[in-house]
């Protein structure tokens, strides 16, 4: 720091907390989203009316999925930060590109993707409260057609496919853990939306990505605080 860092006052060291916290949360989001895809009876890209009908038949499972979604949302960006943290020193360019694309893309995806009610949350409310499916379908379509929402989702997809792919390569090339962790992230992250076989296959793809994120956890748990971040 350039100014008066109060060395004489600060005794606590939070590096251990940040290191272990990032390690603990890193695999959670993709595990949560993998399980969501496996237990929900539909994929994310189905027609709204069909999603409502399937949700109505499996209301309990979709209700559980909505709690798992909290885990996904809460820890998605920290998981990215975990991978960037363990790769930034050995593969700086890849960490910079991958970290930037994913953090910005995921911020836009979370913040803009849900800016108006649509998709599976709206389908769940429609089914649970017996709302007018046709009218809620019109709201869903109108929300999906918002131009700025399209821009947000474009960044989300770039983060998911290119950004996570680069982070997978970063994890692989950095050699902070065995290469198969990085390869798992490289394969499971970018490709899971395109895996044929419906929602269960997509869920398995996400679990593969979670294994990649667990590589960052392993690296963080192995390193000491001085390898993780600067001391005061």
């Amino acid at each position: 720091m350039t100014t008066t860092t109060p060395d004489h006052i600060v005794t606590h060291d939070s590096r251990g907390y940040f290191r272990v916290a990032l390690a603990v949360v890193a695999p959670f989001p993709m595990v949560a989203m993998g399980l969501i895809n496996i237990i929900q009876p539909f994929a994310g890209d189905e027609e709204f009316g069909a999603t409502v009908a399937k949700t109505a038949d499996h209301l309990g499972a979709v209700g559980v999925a909505s709690w798992l979604a909290l885990v996904f949302f809460a820890f998605l960006v920290p998981a990215v930060l975990a991978v960037a943290a363990v790769t930034r020193r050995a593969t700086p360019r890849l960490a910079a590109w991958g970290g930037t694309l994913t953090v910005v893309g995921f911020g836009l995806g979370l913040g803009i993707g849900s800016v108006a009610p649509q998709g599976s949350p709206l389908a769940y409310i429609t089914a649970a409260h017996d709302l007018d499916v046709a009218e809620m379908g019109r709201l869903n379509d109108a929300a999906a057609g918002l131009p700025f929402l399209g821009v947000g989702l474009l960044f989300w997809i770039v983060g998911l496919t290119i950004g996570l792919g680069i982070l997978g390569v970063a994890l692989w090339r950095s050699r902070v853990v065995a290469p198969y962790f990085g390869i798992a992230l490289l394969l499971g992250g970018p490709t899971h939306p395109f895996i044929p076989g419906g929602h269960i296959a997509i869920g398995i793809g996400l679990l593969v990505a979670a294994f990649g994120f667990a590589g960052a956890s392993l690296a963080l748990l192995r390193m000491d605080n001085d390898e993780f971040a600067l001391e005061r």
Partner: peptide
Amino acid sequence: AIGFAMLP
């Protein structure tokens, strides 16, 4: 992150 994603 939760507020972003859960609150329209």
